[in-house]
Nucleic acid binder design. Structure first.
Lengths: 195, 195
DNA sequence: ATCATCCTTCCGAACGGTCGTAAGGATATA
DNA sequence: TATATCCTTACGACCGTTCGGAAGGATGAT
């Protein structure tokens, strides 16, 4: 269906060039139609953009939820560490979804700022809830002076920090940061001995 | 001087709208000249952009170096924690420098990608060096199984993660993340008892 | 002191192009 | 016949860029 194709192509183009840099001509041409035909499906560039963005938010959350439900039987430590690896890894696999989501959330086109922020807030708060729940289910692992909320927020801060390194584009440095930040994080929250 | 004024205005415009979204007409108008006059000082939009970017890299590093040299007498814990606070704080004070630097480093215009990456790598590697040196000078504080490099990279990852929260634009959430991530980080690296 | 020269800075006019958008007609499906 | 989809044609606005020339200050020669 052209409608879905349009959003798919728009995703990669917006991820690559941003809102202003991506042109309807280019998007249409990759779908195989003329740009004027876009207006059969979307009434403006703005509408195409935020429709694509809302999908991107849902897909990001879907990825997280699927991962958690697929791995919930494993030990907490393994879940968290693998999550970082897989999430960052998925970024490089022709997956423009995360790139587009981050780009848009960080630097939205001004006239759409509010709409974008809704999606961003939804993403962050759901993410916090998902991991807080996970920590609560996997109890007995945290230091007594570290509660689930603290462990969640520190974990997500590291995830965000690694996204930054991902965007900087130096994959060797990313690997190192991942292992070092993880090491300190786990030592900071877990009650393991000699960890 | 018009030359400096141009770079100053360009900084805020590029920070706000990105490379493609910022127009020479608007930049010139805020300086008080016509866009044609820009070409007296820069031979293209690209040149204005990367000239502004190189300045931004230098200014970011300058901020860090000044802070460290001003605070080097204080305890390590205080330096690091205050650094996070002041760096993030400076972002909101009509300071487009960090915003422009991050935006450009994350999502450079494609034709300038290599030039931008040089500046980004310079920034990151100098930052790593600065803090590694700091940790080496303030010895006796780290856990025996945490070396200076690990402490540095984990710290900078947290800094980056907080930048993300800054870009998301929810300042209350930022404050919470800062304190929680810091708590876990310090507990992960320091040899303090009952900290 | 006057004049010609040069350089810097700026601007008016205009270039070729691309942008997002609109209206209306063709085509095919149902 | 009705509806959905895509097309052609065209619009006005804005884009970065170029060119020629106007203004003004500085310099050096007369």
């Amino acid at each position: 269906m052209t409608y879905e194709q349009l959003k798919k192509v728009a995703l990669t183009q917006f991820a690559l060039h941003g809102y202003e840099g991506a042109s309807l001509t280019q998007i249409a041409s990759e779908v195989g139609i003329k740009k004027q035909s876009i207006y059969t499906h979307f009434k403006s560039k703005d509408e195409l953009f935020i429709s694509t963005f809302n999908d991107a938010v849902d897909n990001e959350l879907l990825f997280v939820k699927k991962f958690i439900s697929k791995n919930k039987a494993k030990p907490l430590r393994e879940i968290l560490y693998n999550f970082l690896n897989e999430y960052l890894d998925s970024y490089n696999k022709e997956n423009s979804n995360t790139s587009f989501f981050l780009r848009t959330s960080f630097f939205p086109p001004i006239q759409l700022k509010d709409l974008i922020k809704n999606g961003t807030d939804k993403y962050v708060s759901e993410l916090e809830e998902i991991f807080k729940l996970l920590f609560e289910q996997k109890c007995g692992i945290l230091k007594p002076n570290v509660n689930e909320r603290t462990a969640t927020l520190a974990f997500l801060t590291i995830l965000d920090g690694l996204f930054v390194e991902l965007l900087y584009g130096n994959s060797e440095r990313l690997d190192i940061r991942l292992s070092e930040a993880w090491y300190v994080y786990w030592q900071g929250i877990s009650n393991e001995r000699g960890g």
